[in-house]
């Protein structure tokens, strides 16, 4: 009944969003933002045993201009935070940020004067990866999840609508301290 049935063979229909997402997710180039112990695990993920090349992620770019994904691997100190923000600003849109390890996600065990308590104070984070350090398998899993997120990202008016919706939800969300229930 649909259009599909009247099309000649070899033609596939999809949305531009879907197509673009598919292309974007398959050519994600991470910027090296190795900071501490997690950076070593990030390098391990690129090395033969775990081989991030299987997911099209092995091209670590030194220049932020060529990268789409910033993997913040390690603890961000107060001194590093402005640098981190500058690197982020230099990356071209669209861009994503993966906070690797508890230090980048929340400050981790270093709740003190020197460490930024979560890189989301400085840049917007798309994916948080817990662990200290996360195993390479976990990083690969995060890659797949962020691929999925990119595949389903919206464009144009849809994107704006989604952003407004998320903004509205965030404004009314209860702070953690007011939430009830199990510590989950």
């Amino acid at each position: 009944m649909g259009l599909e049935e009247q099309l000649p063979a070899g033609v596939l229909l999809g949305t531009v969003e879907g197509l673009l997402g598919y292309m974007r997710k398959a050519s994600l180039w991470p910027a090296t933002f190795g900071l501490a112990c997690c950076a070593i695990e990030m390098m391990t993920t690129g090395a033969p045993r775990y081989d991030a090349a299987r997911f099209g992620m092995e091209v670590f770019r030194a220049s932020p201009r060529q990268a789409d994904l910033m993997i913040v691997a390690g603890r961000v100190s107060q001194k590093m935070a402005p640098v981190l923000r500058q690197i982020y600003d230099q990356m071209a849109n669209p861009k994503w940020v993966l906070a690797m390890g508890v230090c980048a996600s929340s400050g981790g065990m270093f709740n003190n004067y020197a460490v930024v308590q979560g890189v989301d104070h400085v840049v917007p984070v798309d994916m948080y990866l817990p662990g200290c350090p996360p195993r390479p398998e976990m990083l690969l899993d995060a890659f797949l999840k962020i691929h999925d997120q990119i595949q389903h990202s919206k464009l144009g008016a849809h994107k704006l609508a989604l952003q407004n919706e998320q903004e509205a939800a965030a404004l009314t969300a209860a702070p953690t301290i007011e939430m009830k229930g199990l510590l989950r």
Binding site: G107, N111, N112, Y113, A114, Q117, P175, T176, I177, E178, M179, K180, G181, L182, L183, R184
Partner: peptide
């Protein structure tokens, strides 16, 4: 920062219904 009269400088950690001070 590492003098004894300088605070550690941590922040409260919040959980659902609980706060843990630094």
């Amino acid at each position: 920062p590492q003098r004894k009269d300088y605070p550690l400088g941590g922040i409260d950690v919040e959980y659902k219904g609980a706060v843990i001070p630094p």
